[in-house]
Design a protein around this nucleic acid. Structure first.
Length: 761
DNA sequence: CTAGGGTTAG
């Protein structure tokens, strides 16, 4: 198929001229004759009864003998079976038989054959048969288009539509529905709107199949209101109409509204089918509502869908989203037949759990679990698809598992899924999160097309790596490319400015966001600005902004201030902020640790012991210092002063010797005031064996020479360790990447990408 | 008409 002129997708099809030739094709009478053609064609079966009988297709074929008086309709039930079984290979056998008996001369049979190949996804054969048709009619055109839409070639479908109009064929309501579906896949609102306009003009916008397609078209293009309008216009709403509307709400994040439609539908006495139920379950995922999910589950069992795979997949995913890992796993193990979607849901669910995990240990566990599932999937014989790859790359990002990530990168190239924009973006993010900005930008540059999220990811990557100029340049490039930044993009842009202390630029972008893009600032934007002032020690300005900001400051904002005031020694403001923090986030370990550190810094020892006592009384959990490093395929984890490993003696000794060596470069160990681990009731913890030091030392001893060291840490790095690692990077000439609970640190030659911000260290 | 995917911040 020749490449499609771009005008067909984005521009004007000159529908008016084409349709004006045949305006009557939209009239209901015309429509019904078209539709009835297919349905009224009587199915005469071999035994003469008018009831179609279920037969094995080979058996059926053997009864149609060459040379005998072949009725073309003999083939109908046989071909129908191919469709039901979705078997293109069986269709080929029947096709061969048809040619032998000469039945391919029959227009009805060959038209049906186009439909069979299209439905079974063999578009080459569908097109071949179509091209050899003695005569084309609306059914063969529409069958061909349906096939292209279902085999993810919507642009070809639209091209076929164009051909059809040029050939002077009459589109039916069903044809228009299919073209609208193609528009949805292409996100081509323009063409969709043209078709909509014509359906209004010829007064068929109330038609069920057109309305259904319009509803999902507008939904996919992000316009829920238009989708609902299209739905309301439909005179005879069927299950599909309701389902389309419910999933439109889900796709646009309005789960509650979707549920309302669902209850309304039940009230109207329309029975939901498997599609409806899966859509409703995905609403439950959005709302994290296990409660509603369980009710829907019971309803689906009542309606006979207990063993339905899509529904089971949805339930399993819901369990994972709600953190019920064991229930999900039980369901997973108990499922006889599973599909790729099942695997994907399992992997994506782990990514979700990882994201929501309270502590790094459980995040790490679900990450490794996901990697295991991915391995099993690869062994199962099924081929991972674009969904699998984007999820598993996200898992690698979370684990800072560069080696696995690189292997998967290779796999995406081989399988061809790297061309997918979401997979490409996930890859860029993986390299970002693993501290490999060069590979990230290479992956970004190599993408053939990019989405807003791709640009944002790359900008964030530069920002995280302290490459402010590149981040801002890319932001310009993005605007020049005509991509409209969103709220998230501006968070990254502002944080880039914040790191570099570029106050005027930051304020400029903040104004640009509000005025030029009409994006309402959210807490995150203010957090960046406040963070910027705090870094520069301009606490008064930070406070001024906090006072007048809208929305009102949350606990994050206050904790930035507390930490900032402490590191700049402004205790008066610091205690004020701490009070606010305590109001918003009481009974929280992190809050108390911040407070404790502040008292320690201020030398208020009585308050220190008071806070400690309170922490005990409140039975607050402890912050656990924990780091891990992955070397080849194995992961090694470290606790502070960890003596549990068989190799720990060597590692400890090595840390001591490293400390001695960096001292000659000018390192002085600070007395750390941070309370990292309360396990041993120490007043001040001994920083020499903070977990990341052990992990780094272990990496230096065991990873290949000159390879970068990558460590993940469960807490924020303390100032002393941060300083230590800077010296270490000079000493060893190695790149050391540490991702702590707040940010990424990439140490090269004595400097860190985080810009040495002391506020939270 | 259906289930599963990518971005930010402290």
């Amino acid at each position: 198929m020749a490449s499609l002129p771009s005008v067909a997708v984005n521009g004007n099809l000159k529908l008016d001229q084409e349709f004006r030739k045949h305006p009557t094709s939209f009239l209901p009478s015309e429509r019904s004759t078209n539709v009835s053609y297919q349905k009224s064609h009587t199915v005469t079966t071999l035994n003469g009864s008018s009831e179609p009988k279920s037969l094995d297709f080979r058996e059926a074929l053997s009864m149609i003998r060459e040379g005998e008086n072949v009725e073309s309709t003999y083939y109908v039930p046989v071909l129908q079976q191919c469709i039901d079984k979705n078997s293109a290979s069986e269709a080929k056998i029947v096709h061969a038989h048809i040619i032998k008996t000469g039945a391919h001369q029959d227009l009805f049979v060959s038209t049906f054959l186009v439909n069979v190949y299209a439905k079974c996804g063999n578009m080459e054969n569908a097109r071949k048969v179509f091209d050899n048709l003695p005569k084309r009619n609306v059914i063969s055109w529409t069958s061909l288009m349906t096939g292209y839409v279902h085999s993810s070639q919507p642009e070809v479908a639209i091209h076929v539509f164009q051909e059809m109009l040029e050939a002077g064929a009459y589109p039916t309501n069903y044809t228009l529905g299919i073209v609208l579906n193609a528009c949805s896949s292409l996100q081509s609102v323009n063409l969709g709107k043209q078709l909509h306009a014509y359906s209004i003009k010829y007064q068929i916008d109330f038609d069920t199949s057109i309305g259904n397609s319009l509803c999902s078209l507008y939904s996919k293009c992000g316009s829920l209101e238009s989708a609902v309008k299209a739905f309301k216009k439909i005179e005879e709403k069927n299950v599909i109409s309701w389902t389309a509307t419910i999933s439109a709400c889900g796709d646009n994040g309005e789960a509650v509204r979707g549920l309302k439609f669902f209850t309304e539908m039940l009230f109207e006495g329309i029975e939901p089918n498997e599609y409806t139920l899966t859509s409703v379950l995905s609403l439950c995922c959005l709302m994290l509502s296990l409660d509603v999910g369980t009710q829907v589950h019971s309803l689906s069992i009542k309606l006979g869908y207990e063993l339905n795979l899509p529904i089971r997949n949805s339930i399993m995913y819901l369990y994972l989203k709600c953190g019920l890992i064991n229930e999900a796993r039980e369901l997973f193990n108990g499922m006889g037949a599973i599909s790729l979607v099942t695997w994907n849901a399992m992997i994506a669910g782990q990514a979700q759990i990882m994201d929501l995990a309270e502590d790094d240990l459980s995040a790490y566990q679900s990450g490794t679990e996901a990697l295991n599932i991915f391995l099993k999937l690869n062994r199962s014989g099924l081929k991972p698809d674009l969904f699998t790859f984007s999820s598993i790359l996200t898992i690698c990002s979370g684990l800072v598992a560069l080696q696995q990530g690189e292997q998967i990168h290779a796999q995406t190239i081989k399988s061809g899924f790297l061309s997918d924009r979401v997979v490409g973006t996930a890859l860029v993010n993986m390299y970002n999160k693993c501290g490999s900005i060069e590979k990230a930008s290479k992956a970004f540059v190599e993408m053939s097309t990019r989405t807003l999220i791709s640009w944002t990811t790359m900008i964030a990557g530069f920002a995280q790596h302290g490459k402010t100029q590149q981040a801002l340049q890319l932001f310009e490039d993005m605007r020049i490319a005509g991509v409209r930044p969103n709220q998230v993009t501006f968070v990254s842009v502002l944080s880039a400015c914040s790191q570099a202390g570029m106050v005027n630029e930051a304020l400029g972008f903040f104004e640009m966001m509000k005025k030029d893009y009409r994006i309402k600032p959210v807490l995150d934007h203010f957090a960046c600005l406040i963070d910027m002032y705090v870094r520069l020690g301009r606490l008064e300005e930070a406070f001024a902004l906090v006072k007048k900001m809208d929305p009102a400051p949350n606990e994050f904002i206050w904790s930035i201030l507390v930490a900032g005031c402490r590191s700049h020694g402004n205790f008066e403001l610091g205690f004020y902020a701490a009070e606010k923090l305590l109001e918003l986030k009481p009974k929280d370990t992190e809050t108390y640790v911040l407070l404790l550190n502040m008292y320690l810094s201020a030398g208020r020892w009585k308050d220190v012991s008071k806070v400690r006592k309170m922490m005990k009384e409140e039975k607050l959990g402890k912050l656990r210092d924990w780091s891990w490093i992955s070397i080849k395929d194995k992961v090694f984890s470290f606790k502070p002063n960890d003596k549990s490993h068989p190799y720990s003696a060597d590692t400890h000794k090595f840390v001591e010797s490293l400390i001695d060596q960096v001292k000659s470069l000018g390192y002085e160990s600070l007395e750390s005031l941070e309370v990292i681990d309360e396990d041993e009731e120490q007043t001040l913890s001994y920083t020499a064996y903070h977990s990341e030091r052990l992990a780094i030392a272990f990496g230096l001893l065991n990873a290949p020479n000159a390879a970068p060291i990558r460590v993940v840490k469960s807490l924020i790095m303390c100032r002393d360790c941060h300083n230590f690692v800077k010296f270490l990077s000079t000493l060893t000439g190695r790149e050391i990447v540490i991702r702590d609970s707040k940010r990424l640190h990439k140490f090269v030659n004595g400097t860190c990408s985080c810009g040495d911000f002391g506020g939270h260290l």
